[in-house]
Design a protein around this nucleic acid. Sequence first.
RNA 1: GCUGGGUUCGUAUAACGGUUAGUACUCAAGAUUCUCAAUCUUGCAAUAGGAGUUCGAUUCUCCUACCCAGUACCA
Length: 532
Amino acid sequence: MERRTRVRFAPSPTGPLHMGGVRTALYNYLFAKQRGGDFILRIEDTDSNRFVPGAEAYIIEALRWCGILPDEGVDADGNIVETASERHPHAPYRQSQRRAIYRQYAEQLIANGYAYYAFDTAEELNVARAAAEAQGQTFIYNQTTRKGLRNSLTLSASETARLLEETDTWTIRFKMPENTVVAMDDLIRGHIEVNTDTLDDKVLWKRADELPTYHLANIVDDHLMEISEVIRGEEWLPSLPLHYMLYRAFGWEDTMPRFAHLSLLLKPVGNGKLSKRDGDKLGFPVFPLQWTNAEGETSHGYREDGYFPEAFVNLLAMLGWNPGDDRELFTLPELIQAFSLDKVQKAGAKFNPDKAKWYNREYLRLKSDAELTDLFVPVLQEHGVTVTGGPGDPVAFDFGTHTFSWTYVRDVVTLIKERATFVKDFWTVASYLFVAPTEYVQKDVDKFWKPEISACVREAADYLLASGVSFEKEAVGPALEDFIRAKEWPMGKVMNALRLALSGAASGLGIADILSFIGKDELKNRLQHLAE
RNA sequence: GCUGGGUUCGUAUAACGGUUAGUACUCAAGAUUCUCAAUCUUGCAAUAGGAGUUCGAUUCUCCUACCCAGUACCA
């Protein structure tokens, strides 16, 4: 019988979740949902030294923003589940709360000859490492060196018992077998073989804090939680042989999960993996949500920078995976259906900020004008606009000098959405449809606001105001152009100068559009203002 | 250094032994318009190098180069 698909995302709360981490979570989620399985969130906080307050909550919130909702690990309120229940039979999901579980497994390994006690202190090992390095070598705690170190393999039984009793800095290490070829299979990379002689005796459990290291906790929890596939970052590939050996030592080979190692996200320019620094330098976020660290430094987040979660998820999915055809736009449900591990790229993917923006623009265009108008509201508020009503109300927004209906704002959105990448761009693109410009682009003033041209602009405006022509776009545009043509004035210069007078810059929306929105009074006011 | 992984236009990728090596982003040009943006059209641009297997290699094998990861009582 097919085993139920159960995958997990197991971050350690040492800081904000990186976008690469979100992608790992996403691939796990897609894989699970496609197979009707479970996506579990487990917190790997076995390193008490690197714990960062707020990181766990950040991870949960980031996943939630993306729509990646765990089936197990967090409750309805978004809290990590601490006690087992029918829905959460494998709780707790925080490894620090599973402390009591691990030691017996480590001891079991020792009893069966797969592990041993090591009494070397961290300082002693550092000295050994430094000594080896001085000779251009690398110190490895393995089959060769362990014979000359202080552990239960070299010490007498009584001495071992005494140290176990009297000291509290010892560890339990895996006894890596000699000259054994470990044959492994990776869902993405295929068959891999490694000789155990190149591996070391990894620490599995630490007496100092009574906590396992990643390797032990990971295998034990994946086994206990009945994980069927482990989909994780490439940085774990070198540990895979150890994990295979661990499953073998425990006698859990028959239920060992299948493994898939994802390549890393690389920086846009140059070599190396994507880091916080690259984002700062090149001006794009590397985190899903904004994050302020203990030093008070704030890093950008996709959410705060104005990305739609669906765009973020989409662009992340396409970084290292493709559907096998030319489609690029996928909603989360579509991704669930289309996702496949064997379409995942083996090589690392360089992140492309331009493409990220393109995704957001695509999603912005997909949204209805009504929805975009609602999303525009907080942006307006940031610019001091007061909301006094909603759809249908004649006065919905108070801009100080003018008030506008919700419909007016929606019509502006309809006009300008093609010119925006983010909702916040609406303001920079079209603020002059609400309030008069307060400054004018100097370069454009120098170029277009010349005496002879400004005189034309004034004359044209006077004509429009006096002629009684409607300021509907379809009427005012042709009327203006006909007038300028009849006068044989240079069309471009007069139009650009007029736009400068109305919007503050020579380039931008069409004159007819601007006039139809601002109306007769503002035409008069703005020309007057510029004259002063 | 050692061990493992990787390598198609600048970037993300398609082509799972036979194609004029496709698509998207970026960039450039043209069309359009009162300008800009958008849109449309066109264009630039790649199989890391070398052997081998084969009638035929982007695709399979090996070597070299380069890139990445790991080499912690961190995950």
